[in-house]
Amino acid sequence: MAVVYKKSPALTDAPLSFCPGCTHGIIHKLVAENLVELGVFDRAVGVAPVGCAALSDYFFACDMYVAAHGRAPAVATGQKRVHPDNFVFTYQGDGDLASIGTAEVVHAAHRGEKISTIFVNNAIYGMTGGQMAPTTLVGQKASTAPYGRSEEHCGKPIRIAEMIATIEGAKFVERVSTDTPANVRKAKKAIRRAFECQIQGKGYALVEVLSTCPTNWGYTPAGAMTWLQENMIPYYPLGNFKDFE
């Protein structure tokens, strides 16, 4: 029988720990497939964050680190400076990258570190149980914003892709989503381009991937997709913010 689909060899056999309906699994698959298709898997090193993807070191089959909360770009910097020929990526969530880790991501971009960041934005702290993130939408309820996020009290959500795109050392920045098969295909392409940015030695690259958190949002998996489409995409527009020649 012909094999028409199989799991990427860049993923281990460990069962993923993500909740049903969460798109982290899809994003892992897209990263893994790109590593193999671009021929960099055998020299890849990943840095996992603190958050829902903190167990990614079990899931990706390449050498992996788990960083402290927000520090993945600094860890990746240290690794890459030792082995410039390695292909180095960080995989971070929004509590990790957009809150506690803003300094590290901004300065990795500012130095033009030749690393690639997959930034998964699901507008909430997932692993810790649904607390408000800097990316939580105004009015959206979270366990630390039980009355909904108030703009008056804590501002409007931060748009990371747009911010990183302003930094000279960042050479590729795009925001994608995982809500439809078409958008998943676009996401894979964007990740591919971000990886090529590193392979070609251009500089820092970041792909922001809008993702769902049915568990903490309180929706069914399908309902979460709808909520993402109706609420997140209007505030976090999809598209490319920076590309290289």
Partner: peptide, 16 residues
């Protein structure tokens, strides 16, 4: 960019 970041660059380089 900070002592915190420096310590994680050390973590990354030492780990490598």
């Amino acid at each position: 960019e900070s002592e915190v970041a420096a310590s994680y660059m050390v973590y990354g380089a030492g780990g490598a």
